[in-house]
Design a protein around this nucleic acid. Structure first.
Lengths: 123, 123
DNA sequence: AAATCGTGTTTACAACTGTAATCGAGGCGC
DNA sequence: GCGCCTCGATTACAGTTGTAAACACGATTT
């Protein structure tokens, strides 16, 4: 998938990924209603655009459609992460860690987890 | 700065940041000519838009302008990094490290550097 | 049967992006 | 002095994004 998902569209994908099961447009709208003040119409537009982009599928269920993600969140997130690190730090992750560390973007738990990850990587 | 810089615009900012000194539009275009096949006109549009967004400044130098970044790269990059980690990983950096690690996005050097960083953080 | 409701589809519309071409005006060459 | 070159400024124009409203049509309610 080399398709770009916009920020607003991503919100819809997140709802679908979080649900773990096919949702109707109305259900998606409900899921999102919490953080964003979107109208149902807006959600429907997002769903159409995402379908056009091929990142979600819809099966008919009588009157309505049931929408499901067509790509895995971890794939998308991994792809975007690589892109981001590439663009901002020339592909190296350490400068990102350095930058966040310098701005206190890391707490104890995060640090410990990363260390554990790296330890495991070397084994 | 809560201003968004588009991907193409960022290319121009990178040229200015890399130069380390004020550049004319033509110089910026030359810098960029390597990676991107932009016409001088396009570069001029980018410079205008970036000036409108307030992320660069221009001082007159006789006939032409000399453009300089109005924000520091590290500030911008730090800001975007926080935004990204927030959006994709709920603000936690470790899942990003995990994701990249799992896709072999990390080499030995990167790992060593990150470990050194973390060690220093704890002292 | 008529009014209403829920759904997907079509249309809207301004802001932002990518990518330029054109215009107006000062300088330079001859 | 007159044409050409260089600049910034203005205009262009299609595609994407955010945010919906309007529409068409079958289902449900009254």
């Amino acid at each position: 998938m080399d398709v770009r998902i916009s920020e607003a569209e991503l919100e819809v994908m997140e709802a679908l990924w979080a649900a773990g099961q096919p949702l109707t447009a109305a259900e998606v709208a409900d899921q999102i209603a919490g953080h964003r003040g979107w109208s149902l119409a807006t959600v429907k537009t997002m769903l159409s655009r995402l379908a056009a982009k091929g990142v979600l599928t819809h099966k008919e269920d009588g009157r309505r459609f049931l929408y499901s993600p067509a790509i895995k969140r971890e794939d998308y997130v991994g792809h975007e992460s690589r892109r981001f690190v590439e663009r901002m730090f020339g592909g190296r992750l350490s400068p990102l860690v350095a930058r966040l560390a310098e701005e206190d973007g890391l707490d104890e738990k995060d640090i410990a987890e990363i260390e554990a990850l790296l330890r495991e990587l070397k084994s």
